[in-house]
Design a protein around this nucleic acid. Structure first.
Lengths: 237, 237
DNA sequence: AAGTGGTCTAGACCACACT
DNA sequence: GTGTGGTCTAGACCACTTG
């Protein structure tokens, strides 16, 4: 039988119909009762499914009027940085190379320990330089507590640590808090990435949490600004 | 009587209790049934309230274990850029000055018309230079279709256009799609804001929608990078 | 086994839009 | 008024965690 909750199946079904133009732009969807009948479920379950589409900006629901198709899923070339999407998953494995500059197990600085919410514990400290099509792309500092993440090997760093955490450690990632700012290139950027001193970098600070609230990653990633766009959507409530 | 839905009242009540340390960090909240009893509502209504807190990262719910306080609302000095929060609302009116550089009604460029989803319609085109404590802060290009937004006056531009849209026009804002990137200062930045040529700017492109899906604003805002941090939270699902 | 959250139902009632 | 979405209930059942 199906493992997914019913509202997720309804959501994917309707989403796919929109993307395949079975429901066209500006078309009005059947009303909640009708959909509930055709999916053999209650109105509330339909609403939960449609609410996801609303959050994604694909449909609009107007009380008294109905539900209308407003768009299709967009992610035009931007870098996704959700809790589950690292860099490898979005750009594609073939184009990216990761040079491991540091891969050590050590005690964290006070600042990092504070961010991770730990005391007197060992962490992985990883520094990687990323290149896309042989051009410098980013410099990534990653900190993960050994108590949560262990068994890391170089092959995971060249691939995706997130895939390892999800598929091998079976940990459930939940959320990420990110801060984005701009900064002038520093010595490390120029020496490790090979960018000119005058470069400007886009820095992303990220604190990532598991489903149970524990922090499993604190990272600082600096990108060449030329190749970087951050895209996100806000929805009221 | 109250106008807010019950789940919002429960949400604000619990949120305030957490912020006032009536529920302390890592404390376990009463279980869903107990909360439902004490608020005289159903479990589902409690869940809707707690789901908002989960989305905001303030609590964590674990099936089989309970709900735990995981943090308090943080917005430490960052600039909020949600659909309802413009600049004035977050920084505070007293510190900010807006110099109106352009306030015209004109036909948009092809690119802007495309972004706004209009054809052969007039728009407001507004350029404002913002200063905080007399230091240059940002340069803002705003485009709004006259068919949606009208009656704008200079006083609204010095205050907040968003407040005018919400309070006077009674329009309901719903979502905003934003793109963030870095860019070198251009001639306009230096001449209108008075920043050095070598400055680096953080550019925010924003497309804002009403509840019915119509685009009411397309804007490009360029900030001095020194004063700019963009903060956001991703949550799975 | 007991505690707790997540999903789901069937139906009630209200708020809002269209006409 | 009729159509439609939003909120809410009371209770059922399932999935997961913990002792």
């Amino acid at each position: 039988m199906s493992k997914l909750p019913k509202y997720m199946e309804i959501y994917t079904d309707i989403r796919d119909k929109i993307n395949k133009n079975k429901y066209e732009l500006n078309e009005k969807l059947p009303d909640g009762d009708t959909l509930a009948d055709s999916y053999n479920c209650s109105k509330l379950t339909v609403k939960k499914a449609l609410d996801i589409l609303v959050k994604e900006g694909m449909i609009v629901r107007r009380r008294g009027s109905g539900s209308f198709v407003k768009g299709v899923s967009t992610n035009g070339g931007a870098i996704a940085l959700g809790p589950t999407a690292g860099l490898v998953n979005t750009v594609g494995k073939q184009n990216i190379t990761s040079k491991i500059i540091l891969f050590s197990i050590e005690k964290p600085s006070l600042e990092v320990a504070d961010k991770l919410g730990i005391q007197d514990e060992y962490i992985y400290k990883i520094i990687r330089a990323r290149h896309i099509n042989n051009k410098p792309y980013s410099l990534e500092h990653t900190h993960m507590p050994l108590s949560l993440i262990n068994g890391l090997e170089p092959k995971h760093l060249e691939d995706s640590i997130y895939n390892y955490i999800r598929d091998e450690l079976k940990l459930k990632m939940h959320s990420a808090h990110v801060w984005i700012r701009g900064d002038k290139a520093n010595n490390e950027d120029s020496s490790l990435l090979g960018v000119p001193d005058s470069s400007f970098m886009m820095e992303i600070e990220k604190l990532a949490h598991l489903e149970d609230g524990r922090v499993f990653e604190y990272s600082l990633t600096r990108h060449l600004h030329e190749n970087f766009v951050f895209e996100t959507v806000f929805v009221q409530n």
